[in-house]
Amino acid sequence: MRMPHVLLAALLSIGGLTCVTATPADSVEPGLSQASRQTATSPPPSSGVMPPREDDSVRFAIIGDTGTGTRSQYEIAAQMTKARAVFPFEFVIMLGDNIYGSERPQDFVAKFEKPYQALLDAKVPFYASLGNHDDPTQRFYRLFNMNGERYYTYTKGNARFFVLDSNYMDQPQLKWLEEQLSRSTDRWKIAYFHHPLYSSGDRHGSEVDLRSQVEPLFIKYGVDVVFAGHEHFYERIKPQNGIYYFTQGGSAKLRKGNINRGALTAAGFDTDFSFTLAELGKDAMQFQTLSRLGKPIDSGTLALAEEPKRATESTPSAR
């Protein structure tokens, strides 16, 4: 059903991962999404959401920098609920800055429970990571499913998720990460945390220091995809060292025009709020990013090749 929309399919083979990006029919720039052409006032399409492709896949939603309690957060939450009717995601991952400003009990209600009430009522679990605006005691808030830990891991189907506290990457956390990664025999290894290792954002840019500590482990143990927030927009980074990097920090905050498109950017969207949906299948990950108005702004397929699945490639300059 999606194929008629596909004008361009660019096949990139990076290491063992293959990315087939599909852009909407009226997109004109090869390799880029329609992102730069979206506006907040565009009328929403009847349904821009693609259904899952596989029966037993792991389906989840990705949101970041959400805890504002503002209208935009509610609007994204409403779109997520709508999207779930077509793409029944089982859980949501949160990329940090879950509660901005004060963290009184009423803030958890106004900045999390109310906006996502429909999803919470539908028993959709949220798995949070900590951002620089989050008090680490959020790890005790049951609805964030952190089991009282700043960093933790969990499995869903054939995938293992590694949730890190990028605010404070100390030695015990690095040791823990290496132990967990080395033990994992899961088909998919997904890491997520707040600060992006690669970013074209004018405001923050790549977290080079953090990258020097964690990326060697990601490469060594075959992490496939990394999600981060912090930058208030959506960006898909060109594969780095065989790893796919996404930034989704635009689910309630927005820095309009903040993406400095360059060597790193595969696709970007910084003109409206957004969220991302992902499906981990046997051999491929489908992803789709939708705007506050439900418009598709980026989508594609990341195919997972058989082991050995990595080949080192040069890294573009970080900033």
Binding site: S102, D135, S166, N167, Y168, M169, D170, S212, Q213
Partner: peptide, 25 residues
């Protein structure tokens, strides 16, 4: 103050500092 962010401590800098119990940072 809970209204201001906890500025990220650079990972490389952290490696140069004596380790602390989990309760402290």
């Amino acid at each position: 103050p809970t209204t201001i962010p906890l500025v990220t401590l650079p990972a490389k800098l952290l490696m140069k500092l004596p380790m602390l119990p989990e309760a402290l940072e």
